[in-house]
Design a protein around this nucleic acid. Structure first.
Length: 430
DNA sequence: TATCCACAGGAAATCAGGGTGT
DNA sequence: ACACCCTGATTTCCTGTGGATA
């Protein structure tokens, strides 16, 4: 606000209230919203329904794996079927326990999470007890309180296989039934990675991989149907201009057909329109929304990074800022990172090995680009380039107190003749 | 053609910090 | 107080490697 005196907050609210209304029910665009219809997922719904129907007769359904990229309706179909199934059950309703393995990521916590969900009150402490004790406690409570089927829905199950301990817990979960008398469990795994199965222990695969359902990405037409459906619920009539939804669908289809992203885009566009007090959501709002979302994502990610990773990124930033044509290698980054640890209070200097992992993480997140190259006698290293806007990055760092005094620090390493000469050789070699 | 640079990145060990029951 | 548990971050130790140069 350049001139605060011009802003009258009471008038603003008044105007806001009497202004155009965009949203009727914004929640309908949230990922957690389960609509009455799930377009283009009939085949998957049918299969889940068929496999779980035996619950109605008191039988134990087989374990099940759902594969598909993000935003293809995996979790939604499971929740959808679970609601319908619940309506059909007259007595002994099945339990559904959802676990997001990227949040609840360790064996201990998964067992504790299930236990706490069922018990409702008696909590298992977040740490401290041996795992096998928890396992026995869990068996006890399952038999005691859950006299029917208990579905364990493991969302993002692929996160577990990244650590070897993860597969252990999957094995434990799949053989829960062997130790249960009254209750029966059924594991439903949801994975984003198609090759997730390859990492599984054969013992786990034999029980977990009995049935699987594949979720293909949505194409632009399908996304349009989904968006239309939701837009009807979420927005007031006539708010959405005709070309908006096809555009939104086309953009999301280009990005791997992710419905979650498409909905997010539509919601953001709606928010922008509402904030600007426009009567409708137009083409332009979608464009703006897309830029905003990308930037929001980057800002949020960088601010949420551990301090050490931020320092690594600062090193890359400083090189890009002061020597834009310098070809950055892992070694350069570590050198400047080391300088920075001296300048920023409270930052311990970590080993090269660890920094190498942080560089990989930044690469994975799309903040930087890396390229492994071999330069013969000059060794084999990664060439690194910043992949986001330099100014944006500077603005983000300016909001972090600890970095204030290093944003204009010119790294010593960049001025060393040794480094300069070598970099010139690199430039010729490329 | 052997050599050797400057790392990459896997595996296991270690540490600190949160906890437990006895 | 003590022995022990689980987790996440990091260190230690290690083997592997592509290709310009001697």
């Amino acid at each position: 606000m350049k001139n605060p005196k011009e802003f009258n907050i009471d008038k603003f609210y008044e105007k806001y209230r009497s202004g155009p209304k965009i949203f009727k029910k914004r929640d309908a665009l949230e990922p957690s919203f389960i609509p009455d219809e799930l377009p283009h997922r009939d085949a998957q719904i049918q299969k889940v329904a068929e496999l779980t129907a035996c619950t109605l007769l008191g039988d134990t359904p087989p374990s099940l794996l759902c594969y598909g990229p993000t935003g293809t309706g995996k979790t939604a179909t499971i929740r959808y079927v679970s609601q319908k199934l619940e309506q059909q059950c007259t007595e002994d309703k099945p339990w559904w326990i959802y676990i997001n393995c990227s949040v609840v990521s360790t064996p201990y916590r998964i067992l504790a999470h299930i236990y706490n969900r069922i018990s409702g009150s008696e909590k298992i402490p977040p740490t401290g007890l041996p795992k096998d004790i928890i396992f026995k406690k869990l068996l006890g409570i399952l038999d005691q309180k859950v006299q029917s089927i208990c579905f364990l829905v493991l969302d993002e199950i692929d996160m577990l296989t990244e650590k070897k301990k993860g597969t252990e817990i999957l094995y434990d979960l799949t053989r829960l039934n062997e130790n249960l008398d009254y209750c029966k469990t059924s594991v439903i795994g949801i994975s984003n990675k198609l090759k997730f199965k390859d990492y599984l222990d054969p013992r786990v695969l034999s029980s977990l991989g009995q049935e699987h359902i594949v979720y293909p990405s949505y194409n632009a037409d399908e996304l349009r149907d989904i968006l239309n459906e939701r837009a009807k619920i979420a927005f007031h009539e006539g708010v959405i201009k005709d070309d908006v939804i096809p555009l939104c669908a086309a953009l999301a289809a280009k990005e791997h057909g992710d419905a979650r992203k498409a909905l997010q885009l539509l919601r953001k566009a709606g928010e922008l329109a509402a904030r600007a007090q426009n009567k409708s959501v137009t083409h332009k709002h979608i464009d703006d929304a897309q830029n905003d979302l990308e930037e929001d994502h980057i800002v949020e990610y960088i601010k949420g990074l551990p301090l050490q990773a931020q320092v690594v990124l600062t090193a890359i930033f400083l090189i890009s800022k002061f020597s834009p044509d310098h070809i950055i290698t892992s070694g350069d980054i570590y050198g400047i990172y080391s300088e920075l640890t001296q300048k920023i209070p409270g930052v311990r200097r970590l080993t090269e090995r660890r920094i190498s992992d942080y560089i990989n993480e930044l690469d994975l997140a799309g903040i930087i680009l890396t390229n492994l190259k071999s330069m013969g006698h000059y060794g084999r290293t990664k060439f690194i380039k910043l992949d986001i806007d330099l100014e944006l990055l500077e603005n983000i760092f300016m909001e972090i107190d600890k970095f204030q005094n290093v944003l204009n620090y010119k790294p010593v390493l960049l001025q060393l003749d040794k480094v300069k000469i070598k970099n010139n050789i690199f430039k010729k070699l490329i």
